[in-house]
Measured scan of single mutants.
Amino acid sequence: PTIVLKVSPEELKALEKAGVEIEKIEKNEDGELYITLTPEALKKAGFE
């Protein structure tokens, strides 16, 4: 199962800087950012 999270541009930068593997980055028509994370990326980021 993949996880989709709504993030701010600042959060996205912080995640990328931390080396979190982001599978997909999407922006909706309201300009909101959503990222898709794999279970492996979540484990690496410390989420179980």
Rank of each mutant, 00 (worst) to 15 (best):
G31T: 02
P1W: 08
A14L: 15
E11D: 13
V20F: 04
E26I: 10
E26P: 01
E16G: 05
A14C: 15
V7L: 05
K24I: 09
E29C: 06
E26L: 07
K43A: 15
L42H: 15
E11T: 15
G19N: 08
E29K: 12
G31C: 06
E21S: 07
I25F: 05
E48L: 05
P39A: 14
P39N: 14
A18Y: 13
P1C: 15
E21M: 06
L12M: 07
A45R: 02
E40T: 04
E26W: 13
T38K: 03
P39V: 15
V20W: 03
Y34W: 14
E48W: 01
E48M: 02
V7N: 00
F47N: 07
E11V: 15
E16Y: 13
I3Q: 07
T38A: 04
P1Y: 12
A18S: 09
A41Y: 03
V4C: 13
E32K: 06
T36M: 05
T2W: 11
K24Q: 08
L33T: 12
L33V: 14
Y34A: 06
V7Q: 01
I35E: 00
E40C: 06
K43V: 12
K44C: 05
P1R: 10
E32G: 09
P1E: 10
D30N: 14
E29R: 12
I22Y: 07
K24A: 12
L12P: 00
L5M: 14
L37M: 12
G46C: 13
V4F: 06
L33W: 12
L5Q: 07
E26H: 11
V4M: 09
E21V: 05
T2Q: 09
A14V: 15
I22V: 07
V7D: 00
L12F: 09
L33P: 01
L15E: 00
E48G: 05
E21Q: 08
T2S: 13
I25V: 09
P9K: 10
E23A: 09
E32L: 11
E23H: 11
L15F: 06
L15G: 00
I25W: 06
L37C: 04
N28E: 05
A14R: 15
K27F: 14
L42Q: 10
L33E: 02
V4Q: 09
L42W: 13
E21H: 07
P39I: 14
D30T: 12
D30F: 14
S8L: 07
E16C: 08
P1L: 13
N28M: 09
T36P: 01
K13G: 09
Y34E: 09
E10S: 11
E21T: 07
V20Y: 02
L37W: 01
I35L: 07
K6R: 10
T36I: 05
P9T: 12
T2C: 14
E10N: 10
V4D: 04
E21W: 08
K13M: 13
L12W: 06
E29F: 10
K43H: 12
I25G: 01
K24S: 13
E16I: 11
I22E: 00
V4T: 11
E40D: 08
L5V: 14
S8V: 03
E10M: 12
L42R: 07
K13R: 12
T36F: 12
A41G: 07
S8G: 08
E29L: 10
E40G: 05
G19C: 07
E11Y: 15
L33S: 04
E10Y: 05
K6Q: 11
E29Q: 11
L5T: 05
K27L: 12
T36V: 05
T36E: 08
E40F: 01
L5I: 12
L37I: 11
E29N: 11
L15Q: 00
E16N: 11
E10F: 07
G46M: 03
E29A: 12
A45D: 04
V20S: 02
K13L: 11
K17M: 10
K43C: 08
T36C: 07
V7A: 02
F47K: 13
P1D: 10
F47Q: 13
T38R: 02
T38N: 04
I22C: 03
A45W: 04
K44N: 08
V20N: 01
I35T: 01
V7C: 05
A14Q: 14
D30L: 11
E21K: 06
I22R: 00
T2M: 14
K6M: 12
E11M: 15
A45K: 03
T38Y: 02
A41K: 02
E21A: 08
K44Q: 02
L15W: 12
K17E: 08
E23W: 07
A41W: 14
L37Q: 00
K43P: 02
K24P: 01
L5R: 15
K17S: 12
I3N: 05
V20E: 00
L33I: 14
A41T: 04
Y34V: 12
K17P: 00
G19M: 06
E40Y: 02
A14K: 15
E11L: 15
S8K: 07
I3D: 02
I3Y: 11
V20T: 04
L5C: 13
K13P: 01
K44A: 02
L42F: 15
G31E: 06
A18H: 09
A18C: 15
A18L: 15
A45I: 08
A41N: 09
L33H: 06
S8Q: 05
G19K: 07
P1A: 10
G19F: 05
K43Y: 05
K6V: 09
L15H: 01
D30E: 12
A45S: 08
G19D: 05
L5N: 01
K44F: 01
E21N: 07
P1F: 13
I25S: 03
A41M: 14
K44Y: 01
K43S: 15
G19V: 02
K44P: 00
E16P: 00
L15C: 03
F47L: 15
G31A: 03
V20K: 00
V20M: 04
E21D: 11
P1Q: 12
K17L: 10
P1N: 10
L15S: 00
A18P: 00
E40Q: 05
E32A: 08
I25Q: 04
D30P: 03
S8N: 08
E16H: 08
T38F: 03
K27S: 12
E29S: 12
E23D: 07
E10I: 13
P1T: 12
E26G: 06
E48I: 05
P9W: 12
A45Q: 03
E23N: 10
D30A: 10
A45H: 06
E23L: 08
S8I: 03
E16T: 10
A14P: 00
N28P: 03
L42N: 05
A14N: 05
E40M: 03
E26V: 11
K17V: 11
T38L: 04
K43F: 05
L12I: 11
Y34K: 07
T2L: 13
A41L: 02
D30I: 13
A45L: 14
G46W: 04
K13D: 10
K24V: 07
K24C: 11
K27E: 11
K6L: 11
G31F: 02
K27I: 13
I3A: 05
K13W: 08
I22S: 01
G31Y: 03
E21L: 06
E32S: 14
E10W: 06
V7M: 06
K44L: 03
G46F: 03
L15A: 03
P39R: 14
P9A: 13
L5S: 02
E48K: 01
I22G: 01
L33G: 01
G19R: 06
T36G: 02
A14S: 08
I25K: 06
D30G: 10
L37S: 04
K27M: 12
P39Q: 13
P9L: 09
P39F: 15
K44I: 02
E26D: 09
A18G: 09
L37T: 14
E32T: 13
V4N: 06
L42C: 13
E48S: 02
L12C: 04
K17C: 10
T38D: 05
G31S: 03
K17T: 09
L37E: 00
K24D: 05
K27T: 13
K13S: 10
K13I: 10
K17W: 07
T2P: 12
T38G: 06
N28F: 07
I3V: 13
G31D: 08
G31R: 02
E29M: 09
E32P: 04
L15P: 00
T2A: 13
F47E: 09
I22H: 02
G19P: 01
A45C: 11
G19I: 01
K24G: 07
K27R: 13
G19Q: 06
L15M: 10
L37N: 00
E11N: 06
P9I: 14
E40N: 03
A18R: 15
G19W: 03
A18V: 05
L5Y: 06
K27Y: 13
Y34L: 13
K43M: 14
S8D: 05
K44W: 01
K6I: 08
E26M: 08
E40K: 04
S8T: 10
F47R: 14
N28R: 12
E23R: 08
K43D: 13
V7T: 04
T38C: 06
I22W: 08
I35G: 00
V7Y: 01
E26S: 09
L15T: 01
E23G: 08
P39Y: 15
P1V: 10
A41I: 03
P39W: 15
K27H: 09
I35V: 13
L12N: 00
F47D: 10
E48F: 02
Y34C: 09
V20Q: 01
E21C: 06
K43G: 14
K6A: 07
E10K: 10
I22K: 00
E10V: 11
K17H: 08
L5G: 01
K13H: 10
V20D: 00
I35M: 02
S8F: 04
K13A: 12
N28Q: 09
T36L: 04
L12Y: 06
A18T: 07
K44H: 03
A18M: 15
K13N: 10
L5D: 00
E11F: 15
I3S: 05
V20H: 01
E32H: 14
E32N: 08
P9Q: 10
E32F: 13
V20C: 06
I25D: 00
E11R: 14
E10R: 09
L42I: 14
E23M: 07
I35R: 00
G46P: 02
S8E: 04
I3L: 06
S8Y: 05
K24R: 13
L5H: 05
K6N: 08
E40V: 03
K27A: 07
E16A: 08
